[in-house]
């Protein structure tokens, strides 16, 4: 057991770091889909936009000042992008998911092409900010400091989101909207404003995830589709509109992506969708559907 643990510790930690990143990415997707029934396939493009912001604003070897500035710019751009997406999907409110998917996929493709025109097709690698670019020893294994910090940031954000959703009036509006949005409007709260706010906040988190993911993935064409699929799998596994579901789903997918690939190297590309298929067979509504907290 301990030999196994030693051999796979790095994979497990990598999985946790990826899981935390996926949580930050997927929470917005899950809440918008769960609350407003809007399927936003442009979510991955926002992540990639954030990754390019990290490279452009933060620089390939960022200082703390430029890294934090990049995060700030990503938040602003994410808020605006979420607002625009919310407005663009509004006319499709009562249409099928297919219509929404076509619109947001179209937006995603256009944004990806614009990013590719602006930044080229090379991988734009980004270093971790100073102090986090080295590695530390974890049970005798050297491990990148930045990824450990990512796990910490993910934990803090998850706790913050959980408190926000389960303990505040804002959270009550969100949970009520997931449960029955018509009745939220029947007590005088405008559904469109709730959707706008959640869309904007979720997109800002996706852009932040892009900046944070830069030092791991590097900004590159195609990353948007990769992370979108991971986020969709997280949402399907965790259940729609649930913070706990998004967190557990993200941590599971993180481990599958990292530990799963390490243990079953031959079947690496099947592990993710194999896990998805198992969940869909056993619990098609997701592990935590409707729980919201």
């Amino acid at each position: 057991m301990s030999a196994w643990f030693d051999a796979n510790l790095v994979s497990i930690l990598n999985g946790a770091a990826i899981g935390c990143l996926l949580f930050i990415l997927a929470i917005g997707l899950s809440l918008v889909f769960g609350m407003m029934d809007v399927l936003n396939l442009a979510h991955g493009a926002i992540f990639l936009g954030g990754a390019y912001v990290g490279w452009k604003v933060g620089g390939a070897a960022p200082t703390w000042a430029s890294f934090l500035l990049a995060l700030g710019v990503a938040v602003l751009l994410g808020l605006v992008a979420g607002g625009v997406l919310s407005a663009m999907t509004e006319p499709l409110r009562n249409r099928s998911h297919l219509d929404q998917a076509l619109l947001t996929l179209g937006i995603a493709l256009v944004v990806a092409e614009l990013l590719s025109m602006a930044f080229g097709n090379d991988v734009r690698g980004v270093n971790a900010p100073p102090g986090l670019d080295g590695s530390v020893s974890v049970f005798g294994n050297a491990y990148p400091t930045y990824r450990l910090m990512l796990i910490g940031v993910g934990a803090v954000l998850a706790a913050g989101m959980w408190l926000l959703v389960s303990r505040t009036m804002i959270g009550a509006v969100i949970r009520g909207t997931v449960a029955d949005r018509e009745m939220i409007s029947a007590i005088g709260i405008d559904n469109r404003k709730v959707k706008l706010a959640v869309f904007a906040a979720g997109s800002a988190l996706a852009a932040v995830a892009g900046v944070l993911g830069g030092p791991i993935y590097g900004a590159r064409p195609g990353l948007d589709a990769t992370v979108l699929i991971l986020a969709l799998v997280v949402v399907v596994i965790g259940g729609l509109g649930s913070v706990r579901g998004a967190l557990v789903g993200a941590l599971i997918i993180g481990q599958i992506e990292s530990l799963g690939r390490a243990l079953f190297a031959d079947a690496a590309s099947f592990v993710l969708f194999g896990a998805l298929a198992i969940v869909l067979v056993l619990r098609p509504q997701g592990l935590f559907a409707g729980a919201t907290r």
Binding site: M169, A172, A179, I184, G188, I189
Partner: peptide, 15 residues
């Protein structure tokens, strides 16, 4: 709203 407490139902409605 099945995930909200009675108190939350009432506070939300008074919002």
């Amino acid at each position: 709203w099945k995930t909200l407490s009675v108190q939350e139902h009432l506070e939300l409605s008074a919002l």
